[in-house]
């Protein structure tokens, strides 16, 4: 379980969070909503430490990341934490120089040192899960938005994360693609994945949320 305790974050003068507590409970889906600029992305990025916090602590037992660690130590712990989380970005951020299969196998091979054959086998079943099994040799620039986002979800799942973070996974998609991606996310929820998702879409938010957080 990821716990945020007394989290504080400011950009210059602007205080974005102060004394924020949040638990991402295993098997539950936390939906974060709120107006633009309220700090939804920042909160999500603090969970996997793409953004550092100024106060409080982020915990994924036994990893503990208090604010103000020296850079090297913070970087070591942040990497360890990220290895147990996955993230899906609004703009997909697939790796343009790698085909679909290699996008999915990169982290298992580099981070977890899974042999290529095993990594590819696992990647194929993940791509099956998101309905992209037919696209293994295609390159990201040749995918539609919905296809790219489903590959991005498969990529994020490839390291078998304990929590999947999704930042507006559907906001760049047309309705058809949105439906595909929502089906995949619903599927993950049904299989008991722990999810934290930022969304602007109240219907989607209420449909999926076990916990709902409104930022203002």
């Amino acid at each position: 379980m990821i716990e945020l305790r007394g989290l504080g974050k400011r950009f210059g003068e602007r205080v974005l969070f102060e004394g924020l507590d949040l638990d991402l409970v295993p098997g539950r889906t936390t939906v974060i909503m709120g107006r633009s600029g309220s700090g939804k992305s920042t909160l999500l990025r603090m969970i996997n430490q793409l953004e550092r916090h100024d106060a409080g602590v982020v915990r994924l037992s036994p990893i503990e990341i208090p604010a103000g660690l020296p850079h090297a130590e913070w970087s070591r712990r942040a990497t360890a934490l990220r290895r147990r989380t996955g993230m899906v970005f609004q703009g997909y951020q697939l790796f343009g120089h790698l085909n679909v299969l290699d996008n999915v196998t990169l982290a298992p091979r580099i981070v977890q040192r899974v042999p290529r054959a095993a990594a590819e086998q696992q990647a194929r079943s993940l791509l099956e899960l998101v309905g992209m099994a037919q696209a293994v040799t295609r390159f990201p620039a040749r995918l539609s938005g919905g296809e790219a986002q489903r590959v991005a979800i498969a990529r994020a799942l490839a390291t078998q994360p304990e929590v999947l973070l999704l930042d507006e996974p559907t906001s760049a998609l047309d309705p058809g693609s949105t439906a595909d991606v929502v089906r995949v996310i619903g599927d993950l929820k049904a299989r008991g994945f722990t999810l934290a998702m930022v969304t602007h879409d109240p219907v989607l938010g209420h449909q999926l949320a076990d916990e709902l957080i409104e930022l203002d």
Partner: peptide, 23 residues
């Protein structure tokens, strides 16, 4: 190369050096 590409690699657990090298 957009900063987000490096972040995407780091979010997967790659170190800074690995992200640079691989992505």
């Amino acid at each position: 190369i957009p900063r987000a590409q490096r972040e995407a690699a780091m979010a997967l657990g790659l170190t800074t050096a690995q992200s640079l090298r691989q992505v």
